[in-house]
Design a protein around this nucleic acid. Structure first.
Length: 589
DNA sequence: GCGGATCAC
DNA sequence: TATGGTGATCCGC
């Protein structure tokens, strides 16, 4: 059975057994039997691994050992201890955004998601065992007080864009792995950073709870400068304190500086890992969560010592299944991996052998494809299980329409391969694909070919349909506006009106907002925050192209960070049908 | 090229 | 009442 996993931060010291019991009690029969099926697949594989190790001849074992020794020498030669790699991870991201914008949520257990699935929970909820990936209705059993907040993805995207622009100042090539996770190579920046930097820090106090960050209760505020104003949201008095903070020149100082700036700009905290490569930095980012950072020295012995006791599940790429496989070889920590490496060729493919050995040595994964373009694009939806073919066709059509819309927005002309994905009411997943001689491009093509595949599965009881295009064909690279262009365009405009939120401005050096013309404090974060709000107001009604905008920065940004697309949820009423359509699914509760 | 699996977020 | 959606990659045919 799937046992409860307390991998995540903020889950120490909770009653694992009780939580596992509640989860089991609330698991439906069909899901439970699916889990069992999965587990027996794993057990089978485990038995196979044990068998292979047992029946290996001495020659085979010797060959395996030599092979791994040679590989280790080769990999060790590639070790690079010269880089400053940083992984930054926002703390409980979606939940933190909701808590920031609704102070009531800050003191109660809450989670972002639906009764079907949670995306994130706050730290109060985690104490009950409520965590990402858990269905909301089970979370409610674990924590009846739990407040569920539906996700607001456009907002999370917008906030993510705000702080990723800070990262871009330090590494023009910053990689946004998702809305809340950034990979930053600080090597060059740190090498060139010769002077400390001083920032004005804003923190809030007074009766108004709206703005973050707050000044800690226990801090001595006698000597802080402040300014009072009436909050436009809650009408209470808000006291803004400000003082100066200083950041030095080493990589740890620079990471503190980035985290400080993120919090000043967004009111959200993040955690960071600093190490010689991103694989290690990612692991480190979890070590002082929340609102902390952890640095791993760029030293081979220090790295190996750090990994020795690290549970394998903490390593990126080792999931539930690989963990079980490795455990069957008495491997629980990364240190164990190094001890048992001679067994790898007996049980795993060459790629897996190399991947595990890299992990054991603290080396990054193989560099992947140099083509940054996406490989596939897809849409899938879950609904109440049905075998009614007409209903399945209706859902299928909607999915195809959404996919066609997405490929146009993504600058994709079409794809050579089309794949239909089905999830049966048993939770088993099937895929069926087709590669016609001509590129699949129009809505008609998408619909025709995938329907052909669907028709062959008539009669099955289905709970999810998906359609995917792969081997994509792209449009010509579209010319996109640079940040500076936008600034220059906006500067030409006359101020539209006097600013309504003038009280948000703390008296200092100002410059006019390029959108509304209001005077805004001339500090990058504050200015950016204001400009983003203006843009939001401006574009709320339309469905704007994602604009990458920022106040001009000293360092020119070469390429905009790419964000995932967004979809507007249709507001039209659900059709009166017995089975949930896509619309009614998304509109429920 | 296809279908199943695994993984991350 | 009730267990998501998107994208990538790898393995073994």
């Amino acid at each position: 059975m799937l046992t409860f996993n307390d991998n995540k931060a903020g889950m120490g010291g909770l009653d694992k057994e009780k939580i596992t019991k509640v989860i089991e009690e609330n698991t439906s029969a069909s899901y439970s039997s699916f889990s069992k099926k999965q587990q027996s697949r794993i057990d089978e594989k485990v038995a196979e691994i044990k068998n292979r190790i047992e029946k290996a001849t001495r020659e085979e074992k010797q060959k395996a050992e030599n092979s791994m020794k040679n590989l280790e020498i080769k990999l060790e030669a590639s070790r690079d201890l010269s880089r400053d790699c940083v992984c930054i991870d926002m703390d409980a991201y979606f939940a933190a955004v909701e808590m920031r914008d609704d102070p009531k949520l800050r003191t109660i257990p809450m989670a972002v998601g639906s009764s079907a699935m949670l995306s994130t929970s706050n730290y109060l909820a985690r104490r009950f065992g409520v965590r990402a990936g858990m269905p909301g209705f089970i979370s409610k059993k674990l924590c009846p007080e739990l407040t569920l907040v539906p996700g607001n993805y456009p907002k999370y995207t917008k906030v993510s864009r705000q702080f990723s622009e800070i990262f871009m100042e330090y590494d023009g090539d910053v990689g946004m792995m998702s809305l809340d996770e950034a990979y930053i190579d600080l090597t060059e920046y740190v090498a060139n950073r010769t002077e400390k930097r001083i920032f004005t820090r804003h923190r809030y106090g007074g009766d108004c709870p709206c703005w973050l960050p707050r000044v800690p209760e226990d801090e001595d505020i006698e000597n802080l400068q402040f300014e009072d104003s009436e909050c436009t949201k809650c009408s209470k008095n808000r006291r803004a304190y400000f003082d100066d903070v200083e950041f030095g020149v080493g990589r740890e100082e620079v990471v503190r500086e980035m985290r400080f700036r993120v919090e000043q700009l967004t009111g959200l905290t993040c955690s960071a890992g600093i190490a010689a490569n991103f694989m290690l930095a990612k692991i480190c980012s979890d070590f002082n969560k929340p609102n902390g950072q952890f640095v791993l020295e760029n030293d081979r012995n220090v790295i190996l010592e750090f990994l020795e006791k690290l549970p394998i599940r903490k390593v990126g790429g080792i999931g539930r299944v690989s963990e079980a496989h490795l455990q069957s070889m008495d491997i629980r920590t990364v240190g164990d991996m190094l001890l048992q490496k001679a067994l790898f060729p007996l049980c795993f493919s060459p790629l897996a052998q190399e991947s595990f050995l890299r992990t054991a040595l603290g080396l990054p994964g193989r560099p992947s494809s140099s083509d940054p373009r996406r490989k596939s694009i897809s849409v899938e939806r879950t609904f109440s299980p049905t075998s009614d073919f007409q209903m399945l066709c209706d859902v299928h059509l909607e999915i195809c329409q959404m996919l066609e819309e997405d490929i146009r927005k993504a600058g994709v002309i079409g794809g050579k391969t089309i794949t239909l994905k089905l999830k049966l009411s048993s939770f088993d997943v099937l895929t069926r694909s087709l590669t016609p001689s001509d590129t699949v491009s129009s809505l008609e093509d998408i619909q025709k070919y995938s329907l052909e595949l669907l028709e062959k599965e008539k009669g099955k009881e289905i709970r999810l349909l998906g359609v995917r295009l792969s081997q994509l064909v792209f449009e010509e690279e579209k010319k996109s506006k640079t940040i500076t262009d936008f600034w220059n365009d906006a500067k030409q405009q006359k101020p539209l009106s006097s600013p309504e939120d003038a009280d948000e401005i703390i008296m200092m050096d100002t410059r006019p907002c390029p959108i509304c013309g209001a005077d805004v404090e001339n500090q990058l974060e504050i200015l950016n925050r204001h400009v983003d709000e203006c843009i939001q107001k401006m574009t709320d009604e339309e469905s704007p192209e994602l604009i990458c905008i920022s106040v001009e920065t000293k360092k020119k940004v070469e390429k905009p960070v790419v964000f995932s697309k967004k979809r507007k949820i249709q507001e039209k009423k659900p059709a009166a049908k017995k089975v949930a359509t896509i619309d009614s699914f998304w509109k429920k509760e």
